[in-house]
Design a protein around this nucleic acid. Structure first.
Lengths: 228, 228
DNA sequence: TCTATATTTCGATGATAGTTGAAATATTTA
DNA sequence: TAAATATTTCAACTATCATCGAAATATAGA
């Protein structure tokens, strides 16, 4: 038997349904309390506690204590990237109720993929930017054109500052619901942050689905030539 | 509870140690019989049979029958890419014997990563090509320079033909043993194939470690300016 | 100080999943 | 045709692991 990295070890932590549900819930990039995560994963608080301990021990999740509350978040960008990969290769969700159907529709429409935008919105904006010549699509990444530098500056994003960040600049992230790429990386994050600041999109409680505001609808149409 | 792709489903298939061992063994890109895989994974044939059935059922592995033999292989490029990712995030192998230490050394030195080269050799060749100006490193991919086009043509590789393939052209694959990138994608595959043809490297039985021939040593030094 | 709330810990239970001996099946060889 | 080899199937066993009721611990609020 030959020596190999032990892929089972890293993978088995995520291959259990309650832990998978917790991790997926944390893909909105926010902190959540143990009770919230238990509710989101539809398990009892003590079960959530048990699993969260494993996730923290295994390095997937970090915890901060604030009084009686324990706030949990994904440990780092690497874990999030890995979960993205898992989400893109996993079978699509099964829908068993009208409520789930509605939830799925919202998630497919617009959601956070850790720190950047995904769904129809994420892919739509990305493709609009490519079509307008602000971004150039490569195989696994996007390039910002000079025209695009101006575009982002006008939007209030300093590209030079984004480039200085010690992480991937602009990855192509495969969107699990659209099966096309949306913009990820430092630039994807900055764009999402800016759009939240502009209140073109707002976060919703208990879900990583994102709501597009009326102001946003107008802004996307006018600025991105993307009609929702 | 919100609807999500079920990452546990895709992941639990690989998060079991016997199946993980089988999948890792199949990362040399070759067909292997059930008996060989059982031996490589250090399990009984009936256990291997049980797990292989699950892997085939789950779409990770394909099987071809030739008489009394059953030849198993990874189902496709996507599965291999996914396993690469797992290998790069998994903890390094533990070594408990002199034999394992020796095997690990061989694997770290030069091995196949499905269809392209990895280890010191894979990373070394890749970095030599970048340094010589034949390849340009981007974040997640490599670009072939015009100088590089000539280089590959001289080596007997038709870049235009490689580009026509319906897959990633030249990915940057994170090497689990070197923690740097080696060349993957269609170009990485073509390069490995050519090097095997030239007999600069040869395959070994029962392991994805690759042996560098004396001819190869000379060729790498002269042609790639890479000294082994 | 007592009550309420958030979370963790503990112990028991039941289900699941992996392993293997034995046997059966499939194919090849002499 | 019988023997050998490769693989699969079956059944039983054992270990592991997730879940949850109950209780304990930690913190906040009245």
């Amino acid at each position: 038997m030959s020596v190999n990295p032990n892929i089972a070890e890293v993978v088995s932590l995520m291959g259990e349904s309650s832990r998978a549900a917790i991790l997926t819930s944390l893909m909105d990039g926010r902190f959540h309390t143990a009770g919230e995560l238990a509710h989101m994963a539809a398990i009892k608080p003590q079960t959530a506690s048990f699993h969260l301990a494993k996730l923290v021990e295994g390095g997937c999740v970090i915890v901060e204590k604030h009084g009686r509350f324990r706030y949990y978040q994904l440990a780092n960008q690497e874990i999030a990237n890995f979960l993205e990969t898992l989400l893109s290769v996993a079978p699509p969700p099964k829908v068993n109720s009208l409520m789930q159907s509605s939830q799925l529709k919202a998630i497919r429409n617009a959601r956070t993929c850790y720190d950047h935008l995904a769904g129809s919105l994420g892919v739509g904006l990305t493709e609009s930017m490519v079509e307008a010549g602000y971004l150039e699509k490569e195989e696994k990444e996007f390039k910002v054109t000079s025209k695009g530098e101006q575009f982002f500056a006008d939007l209030g994003i300093d590209i030079a500052a984004v480039r200085k960040k010690r992480r991937s600049f602009s990855r192509a992230c495969l969107d699990w619901s659209e099966r096309h790429h949306h913009l990820a990386g430092a630039l994807g994050e900055e764009l999402a942050t800016r759009l939240f600041e502009l209140e073109w999109i707002i976060r919703l409680p208990k879900t990583r689905a994102v709501k597009i505001t009326e102001k946003g609808r107008l802004g996307f149409r006018e600025y991105f030539h993307f009609t929702i």
